[in-house]
Design a protein around this nucleic acid. Structure first.
Length: 273
DNA sequence: ACTAACCTGTAA
DNA sequence: TTACAGGTTAGT
């Protein structure tokens, strides 16, 4: 579910709610949602620690605690982190409850793919799956020059290349399709076949779409909610994702649906070349 | 470079 | 009943 704009929105809304507060207790309802580093028990690591800061890297949320540990969370498809000011009876999909000094933080996940792992704070970015991530698309190290180099060595189609988190951290199925539409590029194009002008358009489109997603507080196509339990609004601005067969807003022709890189891809074969 | 696996819910 | 869903990883 959450891609970069959604995780960033969770980070921001959560920061307002829980930064500085102490985690008194951890209640586990489904053990596989959490892992403790080196087999240490998750609850023992976390209980009694205060939340110092919240960061995001790609689609990962990093919650740093004051006792030398950090929580690395990934929501995968349907994970949510929602804050409640008052104690709440956990619903059937809530797998972890963090009881805070004031209020509770509930991790719920219908499909149970999401994970929260406790790691020593200095190692939080060295975790294998984080270490391999490409640059942050909205930071300065994501330059046109970088994208030129990164795409040059990919022998796959554009859709597959942009979903690859080692190329760029944080794009998922929604925002890749939207960025490619905005850039006027076909998802079927070979990643190493783009002209410098096309790469520049793509670079711009990726940043524009992600920033718009953040500004809209994410895309609530179905399950996504922020830390206040609120929906985002970017679903109202989607040009192609979820619109297969429907008319292209630019040319009126029906949008195409194809499976690329193992994911459903929607695009306009007339406007995207 | 594809596919299955991890899971549950919803819609066709 | 089957297909499919904002993701990642471990197998061919």
């Amino acid at each position: 579910m959450p891609e970069l704009p959604e995780v960033e929105t969770i980070r921001r809304t959560l920061e307002n709610r829980v930064k500085g507060s102490k985690i008194d207790r951890v209640l586990l309802y489904w053990n596989k949602s959490v892992e403790g580093w080196d087999g240490q028990k998750f609850e023992d690591i976390v209980e009694g620690q205060r939340i110092e800061s919240l960061e995001r890297r790609g689609k990962y949320l990093l919650i740093t605690l004051d006792g030398g540990w950090s929580l690395v969370a990934h929501m995968r498809m349907t994970g949510r982190l929602v804050y409640f000011p008052e104690a709440q009876v956990p619903d059937k999909h809530t797998h972890v409850v963090f009881v805070l000094e004031a209020g509770e933080l509930h991790f719920s996940d219908i499909r149970k793919f999401g994970r929260i792992k406790a790691v020593p704070t200095p190692d939080r970015l060295l975790h294998p799956s984080l270490k391999i991530l490409g640059p942050e698309p909205l930071e300065e190290d994501f330059t046109v020059g970088y994208l030129v180099l990164a795409l040059a060595r990919k022998k796959v189609n554009l859709k597959t290349a942009l979903l690859d988190q080692t190329v760029l951290a944080g794009l998922g199925n929604i925002y890749v399709d939207e960025a490619l539409f905005l850039a006027g590029l076909s998802p079927e194009r070979l990643a190493n076949s783009l002209s410098p002008e096309e790469i520049e358009k793509l670079h711009k489109a990726i940043q524009t779409v992600l920033q718009a997603g953040i500004d809209a507080q994410g895309t609530s196509f179905r399950d996504y909610r922020d830390a206040n339990g609120e929906k985002g609004s970017f679903q109202r601005e989607l040009k192609v994702y979820g619109r297969a067969i429907e008319p292209c807003y630019t040319c009126g022709r029906p949008l195409e649906r194809k499976r690329l890189g193992g994911r459903t891809t929607v695009f306009c074969s007339h406007c995207q070349n």
